[in-house]
Design a protein around this nucleic acid. Structure first.
Lengths: 247, 247
DNA sequence: CGCCTAGTTGACCAGGTTCAACAACGGTGG
DNA sequence: CCACCGTTGTTGAACCTGGTCAACTAGGCG
C-alpha cells in the first residue's frame, strides 16, 4: 500500500499544472512519490488540533474541511478542501496543528511522508514554489472569509459562499452549467459562515424564494449567476485562478 | 538609496533566527540584499487591491495593516504587521493583490525587488522554507481571526485581539511587563473585529471597568493577564512561537 | 418500528447597529 | 494667541438583525 501509485496523484499534478509549467522530470517525481492511500468514511477526523503529523494528506476524492472547536462547544469551520488540495501542508513547516481536520464525505486520501515531500521539494524548487503559491492562495481565501463574516449581511454571506464553492468546483472540473454537488448540511454551512443554523435556514429559503438558488438533495443549481453574484458581491479575484476577470 | 544596507534588515534576520538556524552565508546574503528604504507617514497606502507589485516590502519600523473595502464603503482590516513582517510576500507568487496595504504609523520600509528575492531564495532554499513557514503562520492567524469573528462574543473578541497583539509585540521585543504601545484608533480595532465603533467603545469601557485593561494615550496595560486571557479564551498556540506553552 | 439526523417553523429575546449629539484634543491658519 | 476644524472618543435612545429555545416534520437505516 505504500508504493508509488502514479496516476492517483493526478489531482495534484493537474492543479499544479493549472498554474505552473511542470517539466517531465518534475511530473514524474511527483507521480512516483511513495504514498499511503486510504479511504475514509464521512465525518471522520483526519487529524486533531495540536497533533503533530508526520505526513501530509492530499485529497484525491471527496470533500475535507478544517474546523476549530471553542470551549463552549461552538464550532467554526475555517476551510473546505477539494480534490487536489493538501489541507495540512502547514504541518511540513509548523510543529503542531492549530485546527482539526475531518472528512465531509467519503474520501480518498493520499498520505505523503514529510521526509519524502521534503526530498521532492529540495530537488525541485519550482514544485516547492508552486505549493508555496498554494498556501498563499489559501491565505487569500481566508482574508475573503474574514471580510465576509466581519462585514457582510447574512444574505450576502450565504450567497457569497455558494459562489465561491461553485467557482472552485468548476475550476477542477467538478461543476458546470451552474450546477454542482454540495455534500454539506445546513449545519456545516452555518458553522462556516458564523450564523446560527436556524437563521441560515431562513436566509436559504429567501434565496430560494427569489430564485437565486435551488438547493435540494445535496445538489446546488444557480439559475441566475449574475443575480446571485450581485447579491453576494462576489469578485473571484481572490481565488487567483489563472485567467483573470479584468484588468 | 538602492544599496545593501546590512544592519537595517535586522528585524527580518532576527525573526528568521527565532525559528530557524541561519548559516553565516545565509545571514550575509540576506543582509546584502539590495533594498530601497523609504519612510512613510501614517495612514498612507503602500499598495492597493489589484495592484501588481514588483517588489516586496519588509517592515523595519512601525505598524502596517492590510484591509479590504466593500462596495458599500465598509472596511475590514484583515491583518496587522509589525517589524520583521513582509506584508506583501504573496506578491512574489501571486499576480495581483487581493487587498490593500497601508501604514498605521510612521513606518520605515525596505522594498526588495522580486528578482533579488527570488535569486536569494533560489540560492538558499532554507531561507525560502523559513519564509514559507511565515506565510503558514499568517494563515494560522487568519484562522484564529475567523473563529474569533465567527463564534465569539464582542467581549471575548476584543480581549482576544489585545492578547494577540501583546504577545506578538513581546515576541519581537516591543513589549514587556504587560505594557505596550498600541498606535491604533478604536475605529481601526473595530474594523479588525467586525464590530461597530460604538459597540467596540462600550465593550472597551466594560473591560476597563473590570480592570482587565488600561488603554490610554495609545498605551495598553494589562493589569491581570490571567483574567484577560480567560475572558479572551486566549491560547497562543496558533501563533506558533518557538517555545510552546504546553504539550 | 423506533431512533437519529437534517430541515423547518414560530415566538421571543438580546447582542449589536445606527443615528445623533457632544466633549476633548491637536493642528492649522489668521 | 486664539478661533476654527477635523479626528477620536463617548453617550443616549431606538431599532433590527440574527440568536435561542422549542416543537414538529421528513427521511434513512438498523
Amino acid at each position: 500500500m505504500t508504493d508509488p501509485c502514479g496516476a492517483e496523484l493526478n489531482p495534484l499534478v493537474r492543479k499544479l499544472e493549472s498554474i505552473a509549467v511542470l517539466s517531465d522530470d518534475e511530473r514524474e517525481a511527483i507521480e512516483s512519490l511513495p504514498v499511503v492511500k486510504r479511504v475514509l468514511s464521512p465525518r471522520q477526523d483526519i487529524a486533531r488540533d495540536r497533533d503533530r503529523p508526520t505526513s501530509c494528506c492530499l485529497v484525491l476524492e471527496g470533500w475535507v474541511f478544517s474546523y476549530k472547536i471553542l470551549d463552549d462547544g461552538k464550532r467554526q469551520i475555517v476551510a473546505f478542501y477539494l480534490p487536489g488540495d493538501i489541507p495540512d501542508l502547514q504541518s511540513l513547516h509548523l510543529l503542531w496543528l492549530d485546527h482539526s481536520l475531518a472528512t465531509l464525505t467519503t474520501c480518498t486520501l493520499a498520505f505523503i511522508d514529510h521526509e519524502d515531500l521534503r526530498g521532492l521539494l529540495g530537488r525541485f524548487p519550482r514544485v516547492a514554489g508552486a505549493l508555496w503559491r498554494d498556501t498563499l492562495v489559501a491565505g487569500s481565501i481566508f482574508r475573503e472569509w474574514l471580510t465576509r463574516i466581519g462585514r457582510r449581511s447574512a444574505y450576502s454571506r450565504v450567497a457569497h459562499l455558494f459562489c465561491e464553492l461553485y467557482i472552485r468546483l468548476e475550476a477542477i472540473g467538478l461543476a458546470e452549467d451552474y450546477r454542482c454537488e454540495l455534500p454539506v448540511t445546513q449545519l456545516d454551512l452555518s458553522d462556516a459562515l458564523g450564523l446560527s443554523p436556524v437563521h441560515f435556514n431562513r436566509v436559504l429559503q429567501a434565496l430560494r424564494r427569489w430564485d437565486l438558488i435551488d438547493l435540494r438533495d445535496r445538489t446546488l443549481i444557480i439559475p441566475d449567476w449574475r443575480a446571485l453574484s450581485r447579491v453576494a458581491k462576489f469578485d473571484p479575484n481572490y481565488l487567483h485562478l489563472k485567467k483573470r476577470a479584468s484588468g
